[in-house]
């Protein structure tokens, strides 16, 4: 027993050393450049959204409060179209969080899963898998919103 714990310790030490060496030898993601790309692309998507919103206000007589919904719908439409055309994944590889965080990224996660699982049928394939990636965004979004709302209510009560 004594000996086997010694063996395990030696083995763990060997593993730890190897992991350190491997970490050193593998290329690091270029975090600074990636952050910059994400900043620019994320910003551009937001600028696009703002432009669309202005168009809805200016040419379609939407009020500022009501122009948000058609704007989001338009962005989602563009994102789904680009996903279907096989372009959005390339933007995603370039921009990282820049194209993943805006609503267009959320739409891409749903559309890409729907396309991918179309071959398994509409109900079990598309229906069952569409929210495979987006599901956790919705779950934790709702939970976070609930907690924030709860805190707000409690603060108001005091």
């Amino acid at each position: 027993m004594q000996q086997s714990t010694g063996e395990t310790r030696k083995q763990n030490e060997k593993r730890r050393q190897y992991q350190q060496m491997a970490m050193k030898m593998r290329p690091k993601p270029p975090v600074l450049i990636n952050s910059f790309k994400a900043f620019v692309v994320g910003g551009l998507i937001s600028v696009l959204g703002q432009a669309i919103q202005n168009i809805y206000i200016r040419f379609f007589d939407f009020s500022k409060e009501h122009a948000g919904n058609p704007t989001v719908a338009t962005l989602i439409f563009i994102s789904v179209l680009l996903t279907g055309l096989g372009v959005y994944d390339k933007i995603g590889q370039f921009a990282g969080a820049g194209s993943a965080v805006p609503v267009t990224g959320f739409a891409n996660s749903i559309a890409s899963a729907a396309i991918e699982h179309r071959s398994e049928g509409l109900v079990l394939g598309v229906g069952g898998n569409m929210f495979k990636l987006a599901g956790s965004v919705i779950v934790f979004g709702v939970v976070a919103a609930f907690i924030i709302a709860l805190i707000k209510t409690l603060i108001k009560m005091v």
Partner: peptide, 17 residues
Amino acid sequence: EKQYRYPTEYGGQKPPY
């Protein structure tokens, strides 16, 4: 990709390794 990772058209960023 479909089985081990994400849908092929999903825009996730992969590391250089």
